[in-house]
Computed example of a mutant assay.
Amino acid sequence: MALPLLQFVLWATGSLACLASAVVIRAATAALIAFVNLFKILGEACNDAVEFARGLLWWALQCALELVRDVVMSLVSSLLEALTSVVAGSLRLTVSAVAELLAMSRSALDALAEAFTLVFDGVLQVLVTIGESIWSNCWDAVEYIMEKA
């Protein structure tokens, strides 16, 4: 009777030891996994914060570039309008002086002044188109650089 009781005690002690070691190993494994996941979550949060900052900087840069573009376009437009008014004013004065000097050819000079104004407007439109094209190419280059950066 003592032998089966001793076997039972040894079996129970071994089983409890196996159970305790299994619980300790599983708890340590779970704690290690939780610790690793904590760093993983922190890394993802840092990565998300960096992405947010990058997006915010990109948005700010786009706004700044649009503002600069608007300022430049406004300045160019104002300068072209001033230049047009000065040239048109001086053209009118010149045409008027020539018309007074050459009264015989007044109708021909009026047609010439009108043609010159049309030519000047055409040249002005070409210059504006070239300027817009250059600006568009520069803007595309900046966007390409920003995409590749």
Rank of each mutant, 00 (worst) to 15 (best):
Arg92Ser: 14
Ile134Lys: 10
Phe116Leu: 11
Leu10Asp: 03
Ser90Met: 08
Leu75Tyr: 00
Arg106Tyr: 01
Leu93Asp: 06
Tyr144Trp: 04
Leu6Gln: 10
Leu61Ser: 12
Leu124Asp: 03
Gly43Glu: 14
Val76Tyr: 04
Leu112Asp: 02
Val71Phe: 14
Met146Arg: 07
Ala141Arg: 08
Trp11Phe: 15
Ala108Pro: 00
Phe52Lys: 09
Arg26Met: 07
Ala31Cys: 01
Phe120Ile: 03
Ala82Met: 10
Ala149Leu: 11
Arg106Ala: 13
Ala97Glu: 11
Val86Ala: 15
Cys46Ala: 15
Asp110Trp: 05
Val9Cys: 04
Ala108Val: 08
Asp140Gly: 01
Phe120Ser: 03
Ala49Ile: 06
Leu56Asp: 14
Val76Asn: 01
Phe120Pro: 00
Lys40Gln: 13
Trp135Tyr: 09
Ala27Lys: 09
Leu42Trp: 02
Ile33Thr: 11
Val68Ser: 01
Leu42Ala: 10
Phe8Met: 06
Met1Pro: 01
Arg92Val: 10
Asp121Thr: 09
Ala27Ser: 12
Leu93Phe: 02
Thr84Ser: 15
Met146Pro: 00
Ser15Gly: 11
Leu19Pro: 00
Leu10Met: 04
Ser21Asn: 01
Glu66His: 10
Trp58Val: 03
Val68Arg: 03
Leu19Ala: 14
Thr13Leu: 11
Cys63Phe: 00
Leu61Cys: 06
Glu81Ile: 10
Ile130Ala: 15
Val36Ser: 13
Lys148Glu: 11
Ile145Arg: 11
Ala34Val: 01
Glu114Gly: 00
Ile41Gln: 14
Asp48Val: 05
Leu91Arg: 03
Trp59Phe: 12
Ala88Arg: 13
Glu114Ala: 06
Thr129Met: 08
Leu56Ser: 15
Glu100Asn: 05
Gly14Thr: 13
Leu75Ala: 14
Val98Trp: 11
Gln7Asp: 02
Arg69Tyr: 05
Gln125Leu: 15
Phe35Gly: 12
Val36Trp: 14
Leu57Ser: 13
Leu3Ser: 08
Ala2Trp: 07
Arg106Phe: 01
Asn37Val: 07
Gly89Trp: 03
Leu79Arg: 09
Leu109Pro: 00
Gly131Thr: 03
Val36Tyr: 14
Thr94Tyr: 13
Glu66Asp: 13
Gly122Met: 01
Val87His: 01
Gln7Phe: 11
Gln125Ser: 15
Ser85Asp: 10
Ala34Asn: 04
Leu102Gly: 03
Glu81Val: 14
Ser21Glu: 00
Ala27Glu: 03
Trp139Phe: 09
Leu3Tyr: 12
Ala49Leu: 06
Ala97Tyr: 05
Leu65Met: 08
Ser78Asn: 07
Ala88Ser: 14
Phe8Thr: 09
Ser85Val: 12
Ile41His: 06
Met146Leu: 15
Lys148Asp: 11
Gly43Asn: 15
Leu16Pro: 02
Trp59Val: 13
Asn47Cys: 05
Leu79Pro: 00
Ala20Cys: 13
Val9Trp: 05
Phe120Lys: 00
Ala99Leu: 15
Asn137Lys: 03
Glu132Gly: 01
Ala82Tyr: 06
Leu56Asn: 12
Glu66Gly: 05
Ala82Asn: 08
Leu80Pro: 00
Ala82Ile: 07
